[in-house]
Design a protein around this nucleic acid. Sequence first.
DNA 1: TTTTCAATGTGTCTTAATGACACTAAGATA
DNA 2: TATCTTAGTGTCATTAAGACACATTGAAAA
Lengths: 249, 249
Amino acid sequence: MIDFKTDSFQPGLSVDCVIFGFHNNELKVLLLKMKNLDFWALPGGFVGKDHGVDEEANRVLESRTGLTDIFLRQFYLFGNVGRTSTEHLDSLEAQGLISSDNVSWFRKRFITVGYYALVEYSKVKQPTVDDISERCDWCSINELPEMMHDHLDILKKAHETLKKELNYQPIGINLLPQEFTMPELQALYETILEKPLDRRNFRRKMLGYEILINTDKRRTGVAHKSPNLYKFDVKKYQKAIQGGLSQSW
Amino acid sequence: MIDFKTDSFQPGLSVDCVIFGFHNNELKVLLLKMKNLDFWALPGGFVGKDHGVDEEANRVLESRTGLTDIFLRQFYLFGNVGRTSTEHLDSLEAQGLISSDNVSWFRKRFITVGYYALVEYSKVKQPTVDDISERCDWCSINELPEMMHDHLDILKKAHETLKKELNYQPIGINLLPQEFTMPELQALYETILEKPLDRRNFRRKMLGYEILINTDKRRTGVAHKSPNLYKFDVKKYQKAIQGGLSQSW
DNA sequence: TTTTCAATGTGTCTTAATGACACTAAGATA
DNA sequence: TATCTTAGTGTCATTAAGACACATTGAAAA
């Protein structure tokens, strides 16, 4: 149960984080299952009156993953009037997940700022539940459960934005382990873009960015030719993010 | 003077519009000069409790330009704690531009949603002032006056966003008159991108998009060869905006 | 031990897009 | 009529992208 008696939050404003991870060749999102209810929500929070919105997004991310200094980007403000579901609020209230003191606070019209983060799946500590959620799990974006309010729209828009960002900047340093193979990197791109890519052309293009370092090690224990392990050249990677990769003009 | 006694607005939330126009080969922005004060502000508004944020942005745009159905896009939420200037608020108050009843409302921590619009300069009715502004003028983005709060940051970010958008979608249908010449279109691109482009390559690329219709008319009265007039093929233009122009993946 | 299998690594050709670049044409003005 | 300024146009070279096939490796199966 969250208590707002202190009135120390910006009213009608929340932050929701779409936390992407990559595992088993699937793009996953970290979601919370509401206690005793059949819908899930994006991890979110409310913005303290003396805290920046970015700050709150980072706090949410850290509280759910234990990670700091992570790629996290604001992508949209969702400000339609009907974006919250009164049915869902009814359910939360019925389950006692909103204190009676706070009911009016939660019933107000809310806008929410969407952020998306890219995190390394294996680095996320098995996320702990809180007062209002009974599970915090990775869900494949291909099999999403029913979601609270407009959280599905938020998630979809985050994914769209991510797809677009791939045209401007490299990706992977936050989503993959330190060392990875070219096919793994390709699988990540294919998963995000939801389409297959040519192996040879992908390799050529990716190597052309000059952000990869060949570690001269190989991944062993696979029932086929052992692939080469690469890591990112962090400096060049950052520079590529700054400067943007390919611009049309 | 704006009165908030009704308390019918989302507290601590505003909308600011960066309204771009193109005139004399300069990119211009519509700004308001605060009455008797030496700083200017983006046209903005507050979000009614039962109105969507997009809706309010459209209302602001229409109230300042008289135009509806205009390209208008949300691009960022500005949510830092210190983004409003107490000095500026002091000045507004000293000038009596904020009613004493509303002082506390305005002094609250505010976040603002940035929108940018592309409008045809000549179609904008000479904008009327309101209670708190004494002028509403087009300012060249190269010679901007001192601006209120973080409005310069907002403007800069809008311009950046616009530059990026040029990679994805055509531009001009909202900024240029119905009929225009290729050099005029090029000047628009050069102005937005802040760099010169090769005439021949620009023409080739632009015609390659297949969104232009040659009207077989010419612009007369110029002291040199009269250039051809083009117009946009609205259907194809819209389709190009939907589908995006060039994607790297 | 050998064979099989499944995935990896690699190079070339073709086509498309981009960048660089110079001359002729038109129309008003001097 | 000459001049001046800008518009219109085409080619070559370079780069990026798309399509495509075969040899290699290493575990697992035979």
